[in-house]
Amino acid sequence: MLKDVTFGQYFPGNSLLHKADARFKVLILIEYIVIVLLANSAYAVGLGLLLTAFLMVFSGVKIRLLLKSVKPLIFVLVFTCLINLFLTRGSGAPLVDWSFIKIYKEGVRNAIAMLIRLLSLVLGTSVLISFTTSPLELTDALESLLSPLKKIKVPVHEFAMMMSIALRFIPTLIEETNKIISAQKARCADFDSGNIFKKLKAMVPILIPLFVSAVRRAEELADAMECRCYHGGKGRTKLNVMHAKLRDYIFLLAVTAIIAGVVVLNRYDASFIKNLIKDLVF
C-alpha cells in the first residue's frame, strides 16, 4: 500500500545543480520566483523562459521526469487558464462572441501569462530544489540561512533538528505502518471496500498503534540523544560544513543580473505584446 512512497523526489546525480551549494540554491529559487512574478513583457518572459531552460539543462534531470512532476498539476493549470480566458473583460471588441462566451484579447494574454508563470514555478522549484537537493542538505541550508534569526530567539536549530529527525524516521514509520496494516489484515480488517467514511474508519486501527509506537520511539530516542551529550544547538560543531565555491557566487550573481534584465525589459511592454497578439490571432 505504501510501498512506492518515496520522500521528496530527490534523484542523486552529479550535475552542476547537484553540486551547487544548497544555500545558494535556496537563494536562487527566491530570485527565480521574483523573476517569474515580475516578468511582464514578452521580452522579459522570454528571458525568464531562457533561464528556466538553462536550469533544466544544468540539473541533468530527464525531461520525462520533469513532465511527470507537472502531470498532477495539469488540471489546475488548465482550470486557471480557462478562468483567465473566459472571465477577463477587456476593452475593445471581443475576439469571440458566441452566446454567453466572450473572449477578449486581454483574456488570451492573461491565460498565456498565467500558464507560463505556473509552469515556470513548478519546473524551477523541481530542478532547483526537489530533484537536485537531498532533504538533509536542504535542512542544513535552511538552518544556516535562517541562523541570524537565532539572535531574536527563534529556535532555528531546534526546527532544523526536528526536520532532520522527521526525515530520518519517515522510512522507519512507513515500514511500521506496513507491518500494522498486515497485522490488521491478518485479523480480517478490510481497508478496500465501502464508501469513503467506511475507509476512513478502517484507518483508525492503523493510526492508533502507529501513534502509540511513535511516542514510544520518541521517548527512547530522547534518552539516546541525551546519552550522546545532546544539549541543543549551543556550542555544537558540524562534521560536514557547507562550502560555497566561486561558481556558486557567480551563479547567484548571474541570476541577480537576470532580475535586473527583467526589470529593464518590462518597459518594452505594451506595444510589443499587442503586436504579438495581433500577429498570433489575425
Partner: peptide
C-alpha cells in the same frame, strides 16, 4: 531504529562529537 539520529551513517556517528 530508535537510537540512530541521522539518515547517513557517518553523520549519525558524528552526532556525539558534534554535540
Amino acid at each position: 531504529d530508535n537510537q540512530l539520529v541521522a539518515s547517513v551513517v557517518e553523520e549519525d556517528v558524528a552526532f556525539a562529537p558534534e554535540n
